[in-house]
């Protein structure tokens, strides 16, 4: 099994428009409902952000280890797991946002895709493609541009992530 760690390093995809982090990126923008019948996770990566204006090429340009940075309410909308699994398929390591849709957040945790919530995230705090480090245990995001404090991952969520997913956690319980 893949080794889990609370400290992750990678290249940052800053999702912004007119100098502001994009908020309310819903699940149709992340993974459009036209592709919902796909059940093979490895085929989901190609559709990631296919309906997010300005980022239609994300799936082609993303590299394993990348992290995504967005504004508030990331992943609002439907309960589709595809919107998490498409990132897993591409090897995206983590999603960082000011806040998350509730369903999206748990889907991500259950699939061991770490999400870091940073309510105080400023629009221009980090540069596109900057190399950053996140510490899920302390909730910190840091890079050459600076450092910002978010919510530490704790309790059941952290246990599930470290175990590699919900079922993996239950098996070890």
């Amino acid at each position: 099994m893949e080794k889990r760690t609370l400290v992750l390093k990678g290249r940052l995809w800053v999702l912004s428009r007119d100098g502001e982090l994009i908020s309310d990126i819903d699940t149709d923008m992340i993974y459009h409902n036209a592709h919902l019948a796909v059940t093979d996770v490895s085929k989901m990566g190609q559709y990631a952000f296919g309906n997010l204006k300005g980022y239609e090429e994300f799936a082609k340009q993303a590299r394993p280890g990348d992290m995504v940075l967005a504004g508030a309410n990331f992943g609002s909308g439907s309960s589709r797991q595809h919107a998490v699994d498409c990132f897993k398929a591409l090897g995206v390591q983590a999603v960082i946002a000011r806040s998350f849709g509730a369903i999206y957040k748990r889907n991500a945790i259950n699939s061991a895709l770490p999400v870091l919530e940073i309510p105080a995230l400023a629009d221009k705090a980090f540069a596109h493609f900057e190399q950053v480090e996140i510490d899920l245990g302390t909730g910190t995001l840091r890079g050459p541009s600076g450092s910002v404090q978010g919510k530490p991952m704790s309790g059941v969520a952290r246990d599930i992530y470290m175990a590699g997913g919900l079922f993996e956690f239950a098996r070890g319980e």
């Binding site: 589709r80 797991q81 079922f167």
Partner: peptide
């Protein structure tokens, strides 16, 4: 009532329970 992703729902089928953060 809560909509959840397929991993959560599968887990509820298997175990009869889910985890939830009290809002």
């Amino acid at each position: 009532g809560q909509g959840m992703g397929d991993v959560d729902i599968a887990f509820s089928f298997v175990s009869g329970r889910v985890w939830f953060e009290v809002p």
